[in-house]
Amino acid sequence: MTKTSDPPPAERTRRAVMLVRLRYAVEAVVAVALLSGAAWVLHREFSNVRLDEVIAEFGKLSNTGIALSVSFTVMSYMALLVYERLGIAYAHARVSPVRSSVGGFCAFVFSHNLGFALLTGGSARLRIYGPAGVSVAQIVLISGFTAWTFCLGAALVAGVSMFGEAERISRLIGGPPLVAHAAGAALLLGLVGYLVFGMRHRQVEWRGRRLTTPGPILTPLQIIVPAIDIALAGVALYVLLPGMPIGPLGFVGVYVVATSIGLASHIPGGLGVFEGAMVLMLPELPREPLLAAMLAYRLIYYLGPLAIATTLFAGASLRKSRYR
């Protein structure tokens, strides 16, 4: 029996380049499709909405709702910083809590607002963690760990919500509630499998790299902490909406589905895609108050932290230049 030889290095390189190009092409097609669908939904739902009415509704937002939204936003970002520390622990990097708070906050804010989390968040971490002696390989590991951690928390919240809010979610995915139930069951079973697999320390091969599973402490925290973060972020929007037809737990499920679709689009902040998904799943709400609340949420959860993160990042860069 003859043994087939491996393809030469040049051919393997060409294949790798073709796969990367194919992935980028697929991501671009998905982004255009989601953005086009969102634009159509927003045009259909908001074509009769007048700007002066939205501004009037914006002015009616209660001070209590705004204060609560800001509070939940702060708590959400604090949870994000917790799993930044989890990523640092997994990468065996030595970073002080103060530096990791600044680096993690900037990384997450830039990822939220600019998209492409591994690139934007990784660049921010490189700039802030690099002077502390953290290697590029460790920064890549931290960025990948935190991105995967968010996915695990989103899978938990979405999996549960696809049973509790299956009818609403089915309006978005275009199928019967049974489809949402099946998707929720698949997500939860996948999480159970990951939990069982990751609790024991194992060596796994991924893209030519040998990685270690997180172990018995980090693995459950990878699922629980981001779920708390997502719940807090969802409630930060919930408290701005008037007369909600569902409770906060059900709303968090709707929120995470819309957020996940926005992230999949790779559009900065999921702008337009997130709003379109929310409109489809909350048809009972009047359009003007809904749009005013989502605009306020954009200011509180996205643009406000972006201004703070930009200031912190600029200050860290200036200190680095001064040190040189």
Rank of each mutant, 00 (worst) to 15 (best):
I128Y: 01
R127Q: 14
M162F: 14
L19M: 14
L188C: 05
V257D: 06
F108D: 11
V196N: 05
Y238L: 08
V109D: 09
F274Y: 12
L34D: 02
I230T: 07
P305D: 05
A277I: 04
L285G: 01
A93S: 10
M78N: 08
E84P: 06
S321Q: 15
W206G: 03
S62V: 12
F197I: 05
P289T: 06
Y129T: 03
R168I: 03
G175F: 12
I173E: 07
A117E: 03
P248T: 06
H181S: 01
T2N: 14
G130N: 01
R50T: 15
K60R: 14
A296D: 10
G133W: 00
V54T: 06
I139N: 06
R200W: 11
S170T: 05
I228V: 15
I261K: 07
P177I: 01
V204A: 01
F274I: 07
G250H: 06
A296H: 10
L34A: 02
T64Y: 06
V134W: 00
W148R: 10
N113P: 05
R94K: 14
E27M: 15
Y255G: 00
H266D: 01
L290A: 12
S111E: 06
G243L: 04
Y24C: 09
A180C: 10
G159F: 05
T64P: 00
V49T: 13
M78E: 05
L237A: 13
W206M: 10
I139D: 03
V30K: 00
V179A: 10
V32P: 01
A28P: 00
M281P: 05
H266R: 09
A166I: 05
I142N: 02
I139Q: 03
S170E: 02
V54E: 05
L306F: 15
G250I: 07
M78C: 12
Y297L: 08
L51C: 11
A236I: 10
G234D: 08
E167K: 06
V196P: 01
V109P: 11
A117I: 02
I230G: 00
